[in-house]
């Protein structure tokens, strides 16, 4: 089995090999030593311990503990009840050798930054522009900067500064998780929100936000690093 630089060019019967040349440069003596030290773990993926964020025990405050399997309907006009809905989070897909007992912890850990975003960005009740830091605290800095530019969609900023009340009548998150060798690498969160903002004069704006959030983790913290969201607005 020819090897150059640890596992880097291993002929191990795999279909293919993908090597990051930038972070572990093959011609750098220093990185060669580092690569050799990492070989045992980097080749197997064990450097990302399963005892990481998957074992977080903190459930987001607004997270429903039980997964829902109710299909999400995205068609038709927005119909709001007058009560806030709890955040429903379900893991729709989880493969890659992750222990089933980790599902609950994983769901809680991934949904934590999502719940924070929803609460601060859409449910602030006051001036949403003042809550942008809180809304995007669980996002990577660059994704947060982009999301701020798109605040008309990523927050309820478009409703204006003086809201007397905000109701989120639907908040649904479906998680599709990527893992390999038992180690979780990222997830796509399918998001459905239905929001109503009531102005002091009584006028009401209703809209939905649907789309996807992309998450990975930095150490033990899950972060949103990308998004593709749509906002559909309706007015009385």
């Amino acid at each position: 089995m020819p090897q150059v630089g640890g596992c880097r060019w291993r002929d191990g019967g795999a279909w293919a090999t993908l090597v990051d040349m930038k972070t572990r440069h093959p011609w750098s003596p220093v990185s060669a030593v580092v690569a050799a030290m990492l070989t045992a773990s980097a080749c197997t993926g064990n450097h990302d311990s399963p005892a990481g964020p998957e074992r977080a025990t903190t459930e987001p405050a607004a997270t429903s503990p039980a997964p829902s399997t109710t299909p999400v309907s995205t068609a038709g006009p927005i119909e709001l009840s007058r009560a806030d809905a709890k955040l429903e989070v379900s893991i729709e897909q989880l493969r890659g050798g992750v222990d089933r007992t980790e599902r609950a912890r994983l769901r809680a850990a991934i949904s934590e930054p999502i719940a924070r975003w929803i609460n601060a960005a859409f449910h602030s009740g006051g001036d949403p522009n003042s809550d942008l830091d809180a809304a995007f605290a669980g996002w990577t800095p660059r994704a947060a900067a982009l999301a701020r530019e798109h605040r008309d969609v990523t927050t309820n900023a478009a409703l204006g500064a003086n809201l007397s009340r905000v109701i989120i009548d639907k908040r649904r998150v479906r998680l599709f998780v990527f893992a390999t060798d038992g180690v979780v690498g990222g997830a796509t969160a399918g998001v459905t929100l239905r929001v109503a903002g009531v102005q002091p004069a009584g006028s009401e704006t209703r809209f939905s936000v649907e789309g996807e959030l992309y998450l990975t983790r930095d150490g033990s913290q899950w972060q949103i690093f990308g998004y593709s969201l749509q906002r559909q607005e309706e007015q009385r």
């Binding site: 880097r8 291993r10 279909w15 993908l18 990051d20 993926g45 897909q93 890659g96 690498g185 399918g190």
Partner: peptide, 25 residues
Amino acid sequence: PGYFERALGVFARYTDTNLSPVELY
């Protein structure tokens, strides 16, 4: 829905790489 994660999972399973799962994702 979920296609990206499924495809990446297959890719990772059959590819030798020095990227961590997070980096790969």
